[in-house]
Simulated assay, not measured.
Amino acid sequence: MSRARAALPWLLALAVIAAGLAWFLATHHRVEKIVPMPPRGEASYNPLYALKLALRAEGQRAESRQRLQLAEMALAPGDTLLVYSDPRALTYDQLDALFLFAEAGGHLVLRLPPWREDEPFVGDLADWLPIEPELLDPHCMDLFVASEEDHVEFCRAPRFQLAEDAEVSAAWRTRDGHHVFARFPYGDGSVDLLGDLEMVDNGSLDEGPHLAFARQLLAPNWGKGRFHLVYAADMPPLWRWLLTHAWAFLLPLLLALLAWLWMRMQRFGPLLPSPMPPRRSLLEHVEASGEHLLRYGKAGTLHRALRDAVLARLRRRDPLAAAQDGETQAALVAARVDTAAAQVRDTLDTRPPANTTEFRHRIARLIDLRKRL
């Protein structure tokens, strides 16, 4: 009976747990939810990272670089070079080398500068391509791809106008006849010019129309050579980037540094006279200390200190005599300094001086003995 009563609380607890578990399983079910995570690694700073992976998945040789490094890239006929950033950051010599690469059979993909109403100019591109030097304001363009939803693209991209004698092999233009994309034959290769390249960056290649556009954009040299993707040719030097973007952090830091320096700097007040140099020599200090001890009845301390100094010298000069005591020691020391043993015994006497006169006599004898050792 007692065992049943002891087991009853445990059985009730198990029943409650079982009921709760049954209720949980009946009212809840497992689901999968995809949560977009922020990009990490190269995807966080390379906007063409997804395009590079897509090209490699198609069996193409693709490389991405932050800057335009022509010597290391070793461009060859049949290669494709895509410059993602503002072409105005490229020097005249770099542009000349790029168009020579296109003329030898390469495929060059460039974009227009970002639209600015106060600066609507193409830059040096008009010197190589048959386009007008002035940019036109942005205007959306409809993009239709079979079995895909309709898209509207190039809404923030500037447009350009072809020159009268321009020859193009492919072009996209808005309803008013101005272009957002054109492919120009250039020697044995070709040059593509677009309003922007947002449709091939990391945030766009997950949509079918953008993938189809990227495939058509890179078609001229598909399977012939390497794909070079330059994503930040306009990246300024670090010091200029800090001055442009990090001033909100650097300015308070500079003010804090200046405040700390102001707190720590030397205060300049009225001129003070230079401190007087010490006028007492070491011997004068020792003499003054001795006079002080003697005045306050410490003659025994001074006598004992000098006697210890004499014995210390004796231990260095004659260890055997120093190891003796009494008459033996007095006789050995007397023989060494050529004097009477009784005089040595009185000199090394441990009794403190009775008065000042005796103190001075005994100090004089100790000094004389120390000199003669």
Rank of each mutant, 00 (worst) to 15 (best):
M1W: 13
S2D: 15
A4E: 15
L8Q: 15
P9V: 15
L11V: 15
L12S: 14
A13P: 05
V16G: 14
A19C: 11
A19M: 12
G20P: 14
L21D: 07
A22D: 09
A22E: 09
A22S: 10
L25T: 11
L25C: 08
H28L: 04
I34Q: 05
I34M: 06
M37Q: 11
P39A: 02
P39I: 00
R40G: 10
R40W: 10
E42D: 13
A43Y: 14
A43C: 08
S44W: 03
N46L: 08
L48T: 06
Y49N: 03
L53D: 07
Q60S: 09
R61M: 15
R67I: 14
M73Y: 13
D79Q: 13
L82V: 11
S85V: 01
D86W: 01
R88G: 00
L95D: 06
L95S: 07
L95T: 03
L95G: 06
A97T: 15
A104M: 13
V109M: 09
L112W: 00
P113N: 02
P114Q: 13
W115K: 01
R116N: 00
R116F: 01
E117C: 03
D118F: 01
D118T: 03
V122C: 00
G123A: 05
L125V: 00
L125M: 06
W128V: 08
W128K: 14
P133E: 01
P133Q: 04
D137T: 05
D137I: 02
C140E: 14
L143G: 07
F144A: 13
F144Q: 14
H151P: 06
R156M: 12
A157R: 00
F160K: 00
L162P: 02
D165P: 00
E167S: 08
V168C: 09
A171R: 10
A171P: 08
W172F: 11
R175T: 14
D176G: 10
H178G: 01
A182Q: 01
P185A: 03
V191C: 06
V200C: 06
D201M: 13
N202Y: 08
G203K: 15
S204N: 13
H210G: 01
F213V: 04
F213A: 06
R215Y: 09
A219P: 04
N221F: 03
Y231R: 10
L238C: 08
R240L: 14
W241E: 04
L243M: 11
A246N: 08
P252E: 06
P252I: 05
A259K: 09
W260F: 13
F268P: 04
P270Y: 10
L272D: 09
S274Y: 04
P277T: 04
S281D: 12
V286M: 14
S289H: 12
L294I: 06
L294W: 01
L294G: 02
R295V: 07
Y296C: 02
G297D: 11
K298G: 03
A299N: 03
G300V: 04
L311R: 02
A312K: 09
A312D: 04
A312M: 05
L314I: 00
R317G: 01
L320H: 03
L320K: 05
L320M: 07
A322F: 00
A323F: 02
D325S: 07
G326F: 00
T328C: 05
A335I: 12
D338F: 12
T339M: 06
V344Q: 08
R345K: 12
R345C: 05
T350Q: 11
R351Y: 03
R351F: 02
A354R: 12
N355R: 09
R360G: 02
R360M: 06
H361Q: 15
R365A: 10
I367A: 10
L373R: 05
